[in-house]
Amino acid sequence: MLKAILYKEWIKLRWAVIVIAALTVLSLAYTIGMINYYVEFQGAFQNWMYVIGKSLLLKNIVFVKVLPLITGLAFALIQFVPEMTNKRMRLSYHLPISEKKLLISSAGFGYMFLLAEIVFLFFGLWMVISMTYPTEIVTKVLMSTIPWFLGGSAIYFMTAFIILEPSWIYRIIYAVISYGLIELNFRASTYDQYQNLWALILIVAVMPLTVMFAGHRFRRGTK
């Protein structure tokens, strides 16, 4: 049965997975070009100063900030809007599978695809930066991007939560709260500003429960 749920989610997400993977490759290619450009025109010493002192790398890899966000948002919309259109989720709720299993597997498989894209981007970035900069810089940059990846996860769960919620008033309230929680991940613009990474991880770890909560409210026929 879980294979069937995976099959359904894959049918919905496959084009988005391919498009996002292609965007990731393009973005990484752009980063290689960007690093070469700066090193060539600034010179190695100047570039080093900018990278260390002005967080140059971090400021120029905006796509790492945006891609997980776009991916999380797109995946949640693609997965759950068709389920809620004409209350199609009722079809899923009538399947001979428990409500918990259904919701966990649907969101779980979606998140699995998102995580695959994030891991691809993360390791891609690692490889690209490692080509030019020493391990210390690579570590700093990658550590600084973790909240952005967490932001992508957060937007996925919160969007699913909002879509599955049956009441429009609650949706608006949840959207405001979600904005605040997601925005927490995007506050820093220099290295090492995230001293509370574990707190952010904990917040994202709790978010799947919201999907269960909204799904259960829909199932009960809450208006």
Partner: peptide
Amino acid sequence: IGLLHEGHLAYDFMTIKQVENFYARF
């Protein structure tokens, strides 16, 4: 229990073959 929802609700993002593949596993 076989349910037919108002408006002949179906997973309309699937094809004839895919929807049969999907349901058969349950």
